Simulated scan of single mutants.
Amino acid sequence: MREERLTPQEALRKYREEEKIQDRGRLKVFLGYAPGVGKTYTMLASANRMLKRGRDVVIGYFEPHSRKDTIEQLGDLPQIPTIEITHCGIRLHEMDTQAIIQRHPDTVLVDELAHTNAHVP
């Protein structure tokens, strides 16, 4: 007789129960095949729905790319101010990771995650 295989969710639940591990967080990635296909817009729309349901949602980093429809999706979402640093003589705005950790929200939106982070002292 063949043993029935667990789904990934069932296996994770069983592992957490056996190891007494609490749910530490989740990563949700919005992927698209090209710039301008709606990744940021969709992420913000999803976050606004969470906010309306009472979740503590903040924007950790947002790159509007001058897209009016995307900027309008910001709605009432609070934003963690970026920090300004100078790297190689260029002034840059980077996500303030320490401020996010101190704020400890349920959900943090990070747009443009795949970029080179300048060194923050």
Rank of each mutant, 00 (worst) to 15 (best):
10 E>S: 03
7 T>R: 08
64 P>A: 04
77 L>S: 12
31 L>C: 00
8 P>Q: 06
71 I>D: 10
25 G>Q: 02
36 G>C: 07
11 A>F: 05
116 T>K: 13
1 M>F: 10
6 L>P: 11
45 A>F: 13
95 M>E: 05
45 A>H: 14
5 R>D: 13
2 R>D: 08
93 H>P: 07
28 K>W: 12
110 V>K: 00
55 R>M: 14
27 L>D: 04
46 S>T: 15
11 A>R: 07
49 R>E: 13
21 I>V: 10
73 Q>T: 09
85 I>W: 06
107 T>N: 01
54 G>L: 00
115 H>A: 08
26 R>Q: 12
78 P>G: 06
25 G>R: 01
106 D>K: 00
73 Q>K: 15
15 Y>M: 08
1 M>H: 12
53 R>C: 08
17 E>G: 12
4 E>Y: 06
43 M>S: 05
73 Q>M: 15
95 M>G: 05
98 Q>K: 08
112 E>R: 04
73 Q>I: 07
66 S>G: 08
20 K>A: 12
81 P>D: 02
92 L>N: 10
75 G>S: 10
82 T>K: 11
91 R>A: 14
111 D>W: 02
5 R>G: 09
119 H>V: 12
87 H>N: 11
20 K>L: 10
30 F>K: 04
76 D>Q: 11
57 V>F: 04
26 R>E: 15
65 H>T: 03
4 E>N: 09
69 D>H: 15
65 H>I: 01
12 L>H: 05
30 F>E: 01
97 T>C: 13
52 K>E: 13
18 E>D: 08
3 E>Q: 12
12 L>T: 04
62 F>T: 01
68 K>P: 10
5 R>A: 14
117 N>R: 12
70 T>G: 07
42 T>W: 01
79 Q>V: 14
55 R>K: 14
12 L>I: 06
44 L>D: 05
42 T>F: 02
22 Q>R: 13
3 E>K: 15
82 T>W: 09
81 P>I: 01
71 I>P: 10
121 P>N: 05
80 I>K: 01
10 E>D: 07
117 N>Y: 13
40 T>A: 05
51 L>M: 03
10 E>T: 00
120 V>H: 09
14 K>W: 03
69 D>Q: 14
77 L>K: 09
8 P>L: 04
67 R>Q: 06
27 L>W: 03
91 R>Y: 11
6 L>V: 04
17 E>R: 14
109 L>Q: 03
28 K>L: 15
91 R>Q: 15
7 T>V: 06
44 L>T: 01
23 D>P: 00
38 G>H: 02
35 P>D: 03
80 I>T: 02
120 V>Y: 09
32 G>W: 02
111 D>G: 02
98 Q>P: 01
18 E>Y: 02
82 T>C: 14
20 K>H: 11
26 R>T: 13
74 L>F: 06
107 T>S: 00
86 T>Q: 09
87 H>M: 08
79 Q>E: 13
93 H>N: 13
105 P>L: 09
68 K>G: 07
18 E>T: 07
63 E>L: 08
107 T>M: 00
73 Q>V: 08
27 L>K: 05
